[in-house]
Simulated assay, not measured.
Amino acid sequence: MSLSAGVVIPTVGDRPDQLTRALRSVLDQVYPGRVEVIVVVDGGEVSTVARHVADVIAPSCPAAPYSAGSAVGVACPAGLVRVLPNRRGAGVAGARNTGIAALSTELVAFCDDDDEWLPGKLSAQVLALTAREGAEFVSCAIEVVYGSRRVPRLAGTANVTAGDLARSRMMMVHSSTFVFRRGALWVDESAPAAQNEDWDLALRAAKRRNIVHVDTPLVRVHWGTSHYVARWADRIAGLEWMLARHPELAVDPRGAARIYGQLAFHHAALGHRRAAGRWAWRAFTTRRGEPRAPIALAVAARLIPARVVLNLLHTCGRGI
């Protein structure tokens, strides 16, 4: 008997086309177990999102009702679909916890409203999770989409450790790939502006038990519509929060230099030249081959705009 799975899709409600794509990709999964889907509206109009969700699921549930309070609650062939307001702290972390609290399933899965699951995603991950004794958390490889470019990002392993996540953020261990046992973990809502809450969750999960990883791209991650990409001050606060919360991030030279280089870049993007220089020097002295240090200095010197750097990296399926 397959484990029941609950899927949490947080949304502000401002990108209905992407939400439609995400929701359909979840409902189109062929999975033998019971599935619940909860769309959590964070700050947007719940009734508007509820009507939109009802339209999306109407082909399989033509009489789908909704209300502005708890919104859609419809038993479809694909599973139960509900729309709820965020009842916890504002932001994606609170929205995800709202969804987790509302589920009655054995497993929890996340899908961002601008991403999409590929066919077979849920079944492949649950099979891998249940095949390893004591496993609690499973991720998978991704395909990054930016403009007309599609770049697969693989981990090269079926086993992700806490050390791996300290050495590298491991982009493929992405929130839209997460599937884990309900009750084992919650999202930390103290993350500033919900920055790095997904990295923190994966790192905490890996400290409990190694993460099972299906190294096949089963999630399509769409870049270019993120609410967070250029919120430099929030990204700085998120990295400082991670360093304070997980001191081991400053131990591995490669991982520490990467974070210092990111801090240098974000400060440079804000025009904080001295702070950018200090973090770039720290990155360089921690690991001389850290490429973000000279990039941050070039941005700080106004030789190249931060946005141009990000566009170039995103075209290659990379981030800063």
Rank of each mutant, 00 (worst) to 15 (best):
C111V: 15
A68V: 07
V212F: 11
A71F: 02
R169E: 15
R88W: 00
L3F: 02
A293V: 00
A109S: 05
R96M: 13
S25D: 08
G99W: 12
L80C: 13
R182Q: 01
Q195A: 07
P62F: 01
R149T: 10
T161M: 04
I100T: 04
V35F: 01
A298T: 01
V12S: 11
C61E: 12
Y260E: 11
G183E: 12
A90V: 07
T11L: 05
R149I: 04
R204I: 10
D17F: 06
D14E: 13
G224I: 05
Q18Y: 12
D114N: 13
N97S: 08
E290T: 03
T20I: 00
N311E: 12
D114L: 03
E45M: 13
P62M: 03
W232Q: 05
M170T: 02
D234I: 00
V299I: 03
M170D: 05
N210Q: 00
D14F: 03
V144E: 10
V160Q: 04
R282A: 15
I57Q: 02
V56Q: 06
V56E: 03
R231P: 07
A193T: 09
Q195H: 09
M242T: 08
G89W: 13
T161Q: 05
A298I: 07
G255F: 02
S4H: 05
A63K: 12
A276Y: 06
P192E: 01
T157G: 12
R21A: 13
D14I: 02
R88Q: 07
S168D: 15
V173C: 00
F265R: 09
A244Y: 06
G224Q: 08
L312E: 00
A306G: 04
G79D: 11
P65I: 09
V8G: 04
A257F: 07
D28I: 00
I100R: 01
V179T: 13
L185A: 07
E240A: 06
E290V: 10
G69D: 15
S226N: 10
P32G: 12
M242E: 01
D188A: 11
W232D: 00
L122G: 03
G319W: 12
T98D: 09
A50Q: 11
G147Y: 01
S2V: 09
N86Y: 08
N159Q: 15
T286S: 10
G183F: 09
